[in-house]
Write a protein that binds this DNA or RNA. Structure first.
Lengths: 249, 249
DNA sequence: CAAGAAACTGCAAAAAACTGCAGATTTAGA
DNA sequence: TCTAAATCTGCAGTTTTTTGCAGTTTCTTG
């Protein structure tokens, strides 16, 4: 990996997240933390960012108007994302819905991974642009301001043309009886289409969301091939799900 | 193998992959790495790409478009954006290309403005999500990592279905003789499609870009209805453009 | 103030860049 | 077509840059 690429990656990360940690970058790019430290120092010297203890921060605007830097349960989501990444095979075609857990996944994707990602989520697409090898295809349409996700008939139709190996499906709410549910009906339609276009459905779900229900239903639990949560396999709350071929961390 | 062939191959690779490593190219073409190094140096001298330690990157690649560090240019772009906003009518349907000047426009859009914006640019779309009233439709496709812009046949086709009132067209390079030009051919195709889909074309262009040329042509200057720059009307550099119905700040 | 994390420093191995040169190839003019 | 000049190309030796590591110092946090 070229130094210039690392610099670009770092600037992208800073631009997207408004702050970075050296250790994270070193991890993602697979180089030593000293190298990243030197990179960041150089970028700081060139006034491209501001180096701070342990990382760096952006000088100007963020790309994301809503600062979604404060992710709830970021640790858990990072764990889940790590597990999800192990499911990805080289040259896979992947569908990704939105949500902060998927965003964490996109962020942690190893730099040498050669994949193609389709997504209607703008933050996910932006994040993946920082990845040196991933090919990114954004699925266009009217963008929901809440979900920062393209929705509508056009999106559903476009998804019909795709046959993905893997779908990382975030969900707002998950319950044994009512399945995966959402607050927004249009989001549900998009997610249904994503499910129809993928061979394997993997749902990433922090434990806080288990046993919660909302108004509109995406699918039943049995439509999910793999559920990833951060809980140990014997957790009480997971008991009802065990029969659905649930993979655990 | 001719030198010209190698140069072409190198430019192609850079254009497609945004980056190359000298060793890879030398390997592929079966010549010594020194030869490739000399080739790349020459291409760098001719401003066709940017040479970096160990390889080369495309010209657009290291522009770090969206971390907004250069206060100086930001001032100019803000001025230009302000002027551009005065051209927008209520309930207008607007097409926006990418670029930092357009991004500045998106940032400054008054909150009470009720408009519909189509754009293949991810940062523009993200920015507009922060706007309370603007409806945002992102045009989907494979995303160029350099331009952070959806490109390709799908984008062009989608643009064919749109009839916009106004198109804010950023441009990399502008010259009286060669018109609007870009480094990337696919970006040119998208911009051509945008021009065909709009009643009025407004190009935002800071003065640094005047009298500069790149490899691929978007359109002639006479295809632009309005050109907005930050220079006073009597600026020497603007003299040649006066006859093209140029609006000035 | 004490423990842990991060930063700094110097160093050595590896990679890349640079330099000069000689043989090969191309070009230009007779 | 022939020849001389100019250019191109690969090679070997040298210099510079990059990078990870280990030891030490500085900073942060409770």
């Amino acid at each position: 990996m070229l130094k210039a690429e690392r610099h670009q990656h770092i600037l992208n990360e800073v631009s997207i997240r408004s702050r970075i940690q050296l250790s994270d970058i070193a991890d993602t790019l697979g180089v030593s933390i000293d190298t990243i430290r030197r990179d960041v120092k150089e970028l700081d010297d060139n006034k491209k960012l501001k180096k701070v203890h342990g990382g760096a921060i952006s000088l100007g605007y963020n790309i994301f108007p809503f600062s979604n830097n404060e992710v709830f349960n970021k640790e858990k989501k990072a764990q889940i994302a790590q597990k999800a990444i192990t499911l990805i095979k080289e040259n896979a075609v992947i569908l990704m819905s939105g949500g902060t857990t998927n965003l964490e996944l996109a962020r942690q994707l190893p730099a040498d991974m050669d994949i193609t990602v389709f997504t209607p989520s703008l933050p996910i697409a932006m994040q993946l642009l920082a990845h040196p090898k991933a090919e990114v295809i954004v699925i266009g349409g009217k963008v929901s301001k809440d979900a920062q996700l393209a929705i509508g008939a056009q999106v559903v139709q476009e998804l019909g043309n795709i046959r993905a190996d893997l779908c990382f499906l975030g969900t707002g709410y998950l319950d044994i009886e009512h399945g995966l549910t959402e607050f927004d009906y249009e989001v549900v339609q998009v997610k249904k289409a994503m499910i129809n276009s993928s061979r394997r459905i993997v749902s990433l779900c922090i434990s806080e969301k288990l046993n919660s229900v909302q108004r509109f239903k995406t699918c039943d639990i049995r439509d999910i091939d793999t559920l990833i949560t951060e809980l140990p396999p014997d957790a009480e709350v997971l008991r009802p799900y065990q029969s659905f071929n649930v993979n655990l961390l």
